[in-house]
Design a protein around this nucleic acid. Structure first.
Lengths: 231, 231
DNA sequence: GAGTGGTCTAGACCACTCG
DNA sequence: GAGTGGTCTAGACCACTCA
């Protein structure tokens, strides 16, 4: 094992064993370098991983401390519906419900940064797992950025699969929330109106131009997101 | 900005803009070092972040390639309720509802890795924003690992604030989902029974021992999670 | 065998921030 | 002002793996 890795493991052990409790300051780099018989950059590298994972906080002049961790940043996989379903051995089906060019509602217009009179390509489609509705997708595509989208019928392949081949996005924003199913969602997802759904709203941009905004609704009973583990 | 960071950003741009498409091989370290006018360790550091995030794959002798499977991972912050509320200028209040030692249900017992007869400290408390219920917390604390918890009353300070001073966690798992409010949740949160709630279930460990399992329920109407920027 | 990545050293300069 | 972390260089050796 690499030295920096061995040192990181040992430092982690000292923290988890309570040798360095939360809030305690730990020796500075020079002292650790001497203790472990390595140079300072090697110690810095060992500490970097602990800082990135939020276990240790460092400040110039003030030194390094074991963090009092109230919260942490966690990494989530926002699943691609087809991969998710096929990944657990399910049968995936796709159905285009609706496709037209229209004026998006204000919320979507803002997300896509369209003018008040702007129009966009609106798509609704359903994704099935083993024949049961799994996800209702309601998407708006910015035709100003992707005029070719108007020529696609999106019957055989979903918009997402087409989009990823057209433009790599440079930025994405996700909003996760719960809501009561709208009548339209309830019908499509075959759940009772007002029953809970899990919503993922994603907007993607290339540089500062919005490509698409999509609302993904899942029946609450059959959907959850689990964090990938920190290490 | 640090050189390695600038270089990483530029390399990321080349990948996301399609200059280096998935599967393409990218110049080796020595070539990049010459191009950017830095030494090889600096290039290595810039690439390390891209490798860690799964964007690039590297093999000795074979060189570096843009990964074929682009993982759609996003980073988000699981907020700390008090920070979140006070951060947007709201008034935060806290109320302990219930506190006892009990046998947890099977789901929690599994999360805490307790034997069938195991007991744990059970807490229920409410967090308010401007006097309105914002989050219902239902927590189980592993007394085997934290016997001192039995001596805390958790009236003035929430369990979370006490816990972070006791032991730093080394691993956490979060499950995010939507559900219909249980009668108990509906009453505490002052919403209609069956109305949607957003649930965060978190288990934290130190090494391989579970510290605590907590279920945080939010009224759907007043809660959402937004991703921190793409990278 | 040779080319590539993986790592480490020794030294250096700088930036930040606390006292 | 001084102590700490943050970073970079120049060079080196090694490990792995492909041809």
């Amino acid at each position: 094992m690499a030295k920096h890795q061995e040192i990181q493991t040992e430092l982690l052990r000292r923290v988890t064993r309570g040798e360095w409790p939360p809030g305690a300051s730990i020796p500075h780099e020079a002292a650790l370098a001497e203790e472990f018989g390595v140079t300072r950059p090697t110690i810095a590298r060992a500490l970097r991983g602990l800082v990135d994972s939020g276990l240790i906080e460092r400040k110039r002049r003030a030194g390094s401390r074991v963090a009092l961790r109230q919260s942490a940043e966690v990494v989530l996989r926002i699943p691609v519906v087809r991969d998710e379903i096929e990944g657990r051995g399910g049968r995936y089906d796709y159905l285009l419900l609706d496709r037209r060019v229209a004026r998006p509602p204000a919320v979507v217009r803002a997300a896509l940064q369209l003018p008040a009179t702007g129009r966009a390509l609106e798509l609704r489609c359903l994704h099935f797992e083993d024949g049961r509705p799994f996800q209702l997708e309601h998407r708006w595509i910015n035709l100003g950025l992707l005029p070719d989208a108007a020529g696609q019928d999106f019957v055989a392949a979903s918009a997402n699969e087409w989009l990823v081949r057209q433009v790599p996005y440079t930025r994405a924003e996700h909003v996760l929330r719960a809501a009561a199913a709208t009548p339209l969602e309830a019908e499509a997802l075959q759940v009772d109106p007002g029953s809970p759904v899990f919503l993922i709203e994603r907007t993607t941009w290339v540089d500062d131009e919005a490509i698409t905004h999509v609302r993904l609704a899942h029946p609450a009973a059959s959907f959850r997101i689990v964090t990938r583990d920190g290490r």
